[in-house]
Every structure is written in structure tokens, then in C-alpha cells.
Amino acid sequence: METPQEHPESLPPFLLAFPGPLRDQLVAAVLSGEKVSTTGLLAEYEVEKEELPPVGERSALIDSDGREIAVLELTDVRVMPLGQVDLQHALDEGEGYDSVEAWRAGHEAFWHSDEMREALGDPSFTVHDGTLVVAERFRVVERR
């Protein structure tokens, strides 16, 4: 019998950012081991009517060309107010941030982008300290 590890196409997709240079940068950071965490908006799950992924779930890391690059396993999933994100989480995102303030500025620029606002269906969407975010930690279990 075939297992999901042998055929990642049977796994849910793990998507970082939108296709393009930012996704390519983030996928490379995952593959290098620099990126072991990511942060999304709880509102994204609500708009998509998706449940939060459980710890232990495996998913296929997808690049900008739609290719399955690796299999990831979630090791931690937390919902918290944006204002409670700490330095370790910001560092573990592997994007070169050296402070929570720099991490937040980078994420706010993404979350306030036209593309994200369109995806959320709210052209004036903005975040604040109380905005609920989903902080996920993961590990690469297989490279494709």
C-alpha cells in the first residue's frame, strides 16, 4: 500500500505567501532550515471556512510553479493576538528579522497588501495588537 510520504500530492498544500518572489524566498528558507515557523491570519481560515490544521499533520510545500517541493509536519499550532508574538517566533520565521518590530512591519506590509485584502474580501483590512494570528511551527520530513 502506498503511504502519503510516497505521494505528497495526496497531502494538503502548504502555501507560503502568494506565488512569486516572496513565496520563492520563503520556500528556499524552509529548505535551508532557516524557516521553521510561519504566521497567518485567523481571518484567512475563517474566510476560507477551513479548520486549523492539527499538530502532526503533514502537508506538501508548494513553490510558485505549483510543484510539491517537500513534505512538512506541523509541530505546533497556536492562536494568539498579534501583540503577543515574541522574538523567538520572529527569528524562527527565517526571513532575517532581528526584532519583533521589524517582523511585524514586514508582515503588516503583506497583510495590508491589495492582494491580501482582496483574498479576505475587505479592501480596508488592517491589523492591530488584538488581531488573532495563527503561529505554526513545522519541520521538513521529506524533500522532493
Results as ranks from 00 to 15, higher is better:
residue 134 V to Y: 04
residue 130 G to Y: 13
residue 120 L to S: 01
residue 138 F to G: 01
residue 80 M to R: 07
residue 94 G to A: 06
residue 84 Q to M: 10
residue 74 L to D: 02
residue 137 R to C: 09
residue 137 R to A: 07
residue 128 H to Y: 11
residue 87 L to P: 05
residue 91 L to A: 07
residue 99 S to F: 14
residue 123 P to R: 02
residue 138 F to M: 01
residue 93 E to D: 10
residue 106 G to W: 07
residue 114 D to G: 14
residue 83 G to E: 08
residue 118 E to P: 01
residue 143 R to I: 05
residue 116 M to E: 10
residue 82 L to Q: 00
residue 104 R to G: 10
residue 73 E to R: 11
residue 113 S to E: 07
residue 136 E to S: 02
residue 92 D to S: 08
residue 84 Q to T: 13
residue 107 H to P: 05
residue 113 S to L: 08
residue 105 A to M: 05
residue 82 L to W: 03
residue 80 M to F: 15
residue 141 V to C: 03
residue 132 L to F: 07
residue 105 A to E: 10
residue 139 R to Q: 11
residue 99 S to C: 15
residue 127 V to I: 04
residue 135 A to T: 06
residue 75 T to K: 12
residue 140 V to E: 03
residue 128 H to Q: 10
residue 114 D to H: 15
residue 89 H to C: 04
residue 82 L to R: 00
residue 112 H to M: 12
residue 124 S to N: 13
residue 123 P to D: 02
residue 112 H to W: 11
residue 129 D to G: 15
residue 89 H to S: 04
residue 101 E to Q: 12
residue 140 V to N: 03
residue 75 T to C: 13
residue 102 A to M: 07
residue 120 L to R: 00
residue 142 E to Y: 14
residue 105 A to V: 10
residue 86 D to W: 12
residue 91 L to Q: 06
residue 129 D to Q: 08
residue 100 V to A: 05
residue 138 F to D: 00
residue 141 V to D: 02
residue 140 V to D: 02
residue 128 H to R: 13
residue 101 E to T: 13
residue 118 E to A: 13
residue 98 D to K: 13
residue 73 E to L: 12
residue 128 H to P: 09
residue 87 L to Q: 06
residue 106 G to R: 03
residue 119 A to Y: 02
residue 85 V to S: 01
residue 114 D to T: 15
residue 130 G to S: 13
residue 105 A to K: 06
residue 129 D to R: 10
residue 136 E to Q: 05
residue 125 F to L: 05
residue 126 T to Y: 11
residue 85 V to H: 01
residue 140 V to F: 09
residue 79 V to G: 14
residue 97 Y to W: 15
residue 125 F to Y: 08
residue 105 A to P: 01
residue 78 R to S: 15
residue 131 T to K: 08
residue 77 V to D: 04
residue 129 D to F: 15
residue 142 E to I: 08
residue 136 E to G: 04
residue 116 M to T: 10
residue 75 T to M: 15
residue 124 S to P: 04
residue 110 F to Y: 08
residue 123 P to A: 01
residue 124 S to T: 14
residue 131 T to M: 11
residue 142 E to D: 13
residue 84 Q to R: 12
residue 76 D to P: 06
residue 85 V to E: 00
residue 128 H to W: 09
residue 124 S to E: 15
residue 80 M to Q: 11
residue 142 E to P: 06
residue 126 T to K: 13
residue 142 E to C: 11
residue 113 S to P: 09
residue 76 D to T: 09
residue 119 A to I: 04
residue 104 R to I: 12
residue 86 D to C: 12
residue 140 V to G: 04
residue 143 R to C: 03
residue 132 L to P: 03
residue 124 S to A: 14
residue 138 F to N: 00
residue 131 T to L: 08
residue 116 M to V: 12
residue 95 E to R: 11
residue 98 D to H: 14
residue 77 V to C: 05
residue 134 V to A: 07
residue 97 Y to P: 05
residue 133 V to I: 10
residue 124 S to F: 14
residue 103 W to R: 00
residue 73 E to M: 12
residue 143 R to G: 03
residue 98 D to N: 13
residue 106 G to Y: 09
residue 123 P to C: 06
residue 114 D to V: 14
residue 77 V to Q: 02
residue 137 R to E: 06
residue 113 S to I: 06
residue 92 D to P: 00
residue 83 G to M: 14
residue 75 T to R: 11
residue 108 E to I: 11
